[in-house]
């Protein structure tokens, strides 16, 4: 059984779905904007140590496309820098969660029955706790910062991957290609990594792409309740929270940051849907 797909065919199939294309384009634009933020934002210094009380609370204009906040900083510039924080959070969290979760999932699915029982209980315990509350509790033990937020979200995210991989491996552990490898004397580690793991990758990719948006949302939620990056670092969730008190007069404070989060999340969701369709078609 193989899941490898010729890249041109895959691209053609993916591009048949307009929504997936829009999602991919959105993600691409956001990533490029975030990477090039210091060079393309009109006021890059507004992402750092900067105050300009004379210009605070300015509505959107040709100078400040999305207006200024109540410190006098350009919101458009801060949103582009905020994309950086959000994307960094999502990439690091998913790198940790996918790696660790997959490792635990392989152990649970291809280890001994006792190992599986214990690990699945541990995974279920983690999954039974509300993600946001658990992350808040973890952050509460330390001084809030982006690194602490990343660690906290990783802790609440890995069990999803562990359960996904654990169940996938459990369902294919008696497939012919696995048994054949066992018969020829391949080690368990080799079978797990080279025979079983590749069969999990489509599901992992699909879930990870959808989770990018969800991690961004959870990060924004943590920032919204005051557990995000400390000022003056731009943070989309914090921007929404700070602006919420000033609705409706200063609508651009919250709306623009909220819309930025929406764009990011919907982009990743559409990409995830496209990947899911692609792999489903293959199967």
């Amino acid at each position: 059984m193989t899941t490898r797909l010729a890249i041109p065919i895959a691209l053609r199939r993916y591009s048949r779905n307009p929504a997936s294309l829009i999602g991919a384009a959105t993600v691409l634009v956001v990533v490029v904007a975030a990477v090039l933020a210091p060079y393309i934002t009109p006021f890059p210094e507004h992402a750092g140590t900067f105050v300009d009380f004379a210009n605070m609370g300015q509505p959107p204009s040709s100078v400040h496309l999305l207006g200024t906040d109540l410190i006098g900083r350009d919101i458009f510039s801060r949103i582009l820098f905020g994309f950086r924080s959000s994307l960094l959070l999502a990439v690091i969290v998913l790198s940790i969660a996918v790696s660790f979760g997959t490792f635990v999932g392989l152990l649970a699915g291809y280890g001994s029955p006792a190992t599986r029982t214990v690990l699945m209980y541990v995974i279920d315990i983690f999954l039974s706790l509300p993600s946001l509350l658990l992350a808040m509790a973890i952050i509460g033990l330390f001084r809030p910062s982006q690194i602490v937020a990343m660690m906290a979200v990783s802790v609440v995210w890995w069990p999803w991957y562990a359960r996904l991989v654990g169940n996938l491996v459990w369902s294919i552990r008696r497939e012919g290609f696995v048994l054949s490898a066992e018969l020829v004397g391949a080690s368990k580690a080799r079978i797990a990594l080279l025979e079983i793991l590749p069969n999990c990758i489509p599901s992992l990719l699909t879930k990870a792409s959808i989770d990018m948006g969800l991690v961004v949302l959870l990060g924004a939620s943590l920032s919204f309740v005051g557990l995000g990056a400390p000022p003056p670092q731009p943070d989309l969730g914090t921007m929404v929270a700070e602006g919420a008190s000033y609705l409706p007069e200063y609508w651009w404070l919250s709306i623009s940051a909220g819309f930025a989060i929406f764009i990011l999340v919907i982009g990743f969701n559409l990409v995830g849907d496209g990947l899911q369709d692609l792999f489903d078609a293959e199967q």
Binding site: T49, F53, G226, P230, P231
Partner: peptide
């Protein structure tokens, strides 16, 4: 952190100290 207005003073303090050459880390807390 409950006092939104004081955050303005903190940011102003940070920006003032940057001109003097003093590094500042902001750390609000409930």
């Amino acid at each position: 952190s409950e006092f939104a207005q004081v955050q303005k003073y903190a940011l102003l303090f940070q920006s003032s100290m940057a001109e003097v050459g003093i590094k500042v880390e902001l750390s609000p807390a409930p």
